[in-house]
């Protein structure tokens, strides 16, 4: 794979991979680092890319593994929000980035009570916009498993939102 091909086929995935990593580690800077490392890894394995049928799915898997490695290394295990407050220090637009931080915190709250499978399906469908068919292939699940888990994930989130609105005012 040439640099031109990389720029054309892989680089456009940067935001998707970023959101994916962000929804796993809940830290902006860490998610950026992950995407950067993922791209470097992919580039180093560029000779294998031609044999990979679904490059996007492969990039998602690499990002997932990289995020999990980071989580394991830092022993964060999806509790990275404590560190999120330390983000956005060197910023030219603190207001906008504070909003980003709140959003990441909200996503974390939304997902924290889901099972791992529900979280992954919700992440792929509602946060990244993949279809059920694509999720089925990415996760090696059946149609009904994807549907049921998506339904349950959304129901849990709906219930939680209802409670937050009622009790939180």
């Amino acid at each position: 794979m040439s640099t031109e091909e990389f720029q054309k086929d892989i680089l456009p995935l940067q935001d998707k991979l970023y959101r994916y990593a962000l929804s796993m580690v809940y830290e902006v800077d860490l998610a950026k680092d992950i995407v950067q490392e993922v791209f470097i890894k992919i580039w180093k394995k560029r000779d294998q890319l031609s044999q990979i049928e679904n490059k996007e799915a492969w990039c998602i898997r690499v990002t997932r593994n990289q995020s999990l490695d980071k989580l394991k290394m830092a022993h964060r295990k999806n509790v990275g929000l404590e560190h999120a407050a330390n983000q956005f220090v060197n910023t030219l637009n603190p207001e906008g980035l504070a909003e980003e931080k709140d959003l990441v915190a909200a996503i974390y709250e939304m997902m924290k009570e889901l099972t791992e499978q529900q979280r992954e399906i919700f992440r792929l469908r509602d946060l990244l916009g993949y279809s059920n068919k694509e999720i089925k292939e990415l996760m090696n699940l059946s149609d009904s498993q994807v549907k049921v888990n998506l339904f349950r994930a959304r129901q849990k989130i709906k219930l939680k939102l209802g409670k937050l609105i009622n009790y939180g005012g």
Binding site: T3, V35, I40, L127
Partner: peptide
């Protein structure tokens, strides 16, 4: 969340590294 982006500079940095 679906609008969160790394920006064009990120891509340029990656290409420079590569």
């Amino acid at each position: 969340f679906s609008q969160m982006s790394l920006g064009a500079d990120f891509g340029k940095e990656i290409m420079a590294k590569i």
